[in-house]
């Protein structure tokens, strides 16, 4: 498992709708905002790259020092962004694919308004479980 990993789902309106620090490293106070900064800035890159390929998994698109940003763009242009320091492309890909499935289940919920924050605790535990499994 990666020592540092931050997973964020960004809605098509660039609003973060789910955030999780899934790294095994002990949390630092300023880590959260740094991670947000990196991921937020990486959106600029995603914006360019997303339209150049038909694949949903964009691989590692941006880096900051030793942190790498991997992105997965769904058909609805919701972006799954993972900030990580491990090099495990296959694991990350599987992680994204399974999270995508979970996300679709969330979308199927008639009470969930697409683009609003995902507050389901079930989703949270599942995502964290997937992170442990693949990252």
């Amino acid at each position: 498992m990666a020592t540092t990993a931050c997973f964020i789902i960004v809605s098509r309106n660039d609003i973060p709708i789910y955030e999780a620090e899934v790294g095994s490293a002990t949390k630092r106070e300023d880590a959260a905002q740094l991670h947000q900064f990196i991921l937020h800035a990486a959106l600029d890159i995603v914006q360019d790259l997303a339209w150049t390929t038909s694949a949903m998994f964009l691989k590692a698109i941006d880096r900051f020092n030793d942190l790498v940003v991997s992105v997965y763009v769904t058909a609805g242009h919701t972006r799954f962004m993972l900030l990580h320091d491990s090099r495990n492309d296959d694991g990350i890909k599987s992680f994204f694919q399974e999270v995508h499935e979970l996300y679709i289940k969330i979308l199927l919920n008639p009470l969930y308004l697409p683009g609003s924050r995902i507050t389901s605790s079930h989703f949270d535990t599942k995502v964290r479980g997937l992170a442990r499994k693949y990252l």
């Binding site: 937020h40 800035a41 600029d44 890159i45 914006q47």
Partner: peptide, 18 residues
């Protein structure tokens, strides 16, 4: 530079300013 790039990368701009 990020600001001046086409299209402007505002988020990168902000991040590097910070």
């Amino acid at each position: 530079c990020y600001l001046l790039s086409k299209p402007p990368m505002l988020r990168k701009f902000g991040f590097h300013l910070v």
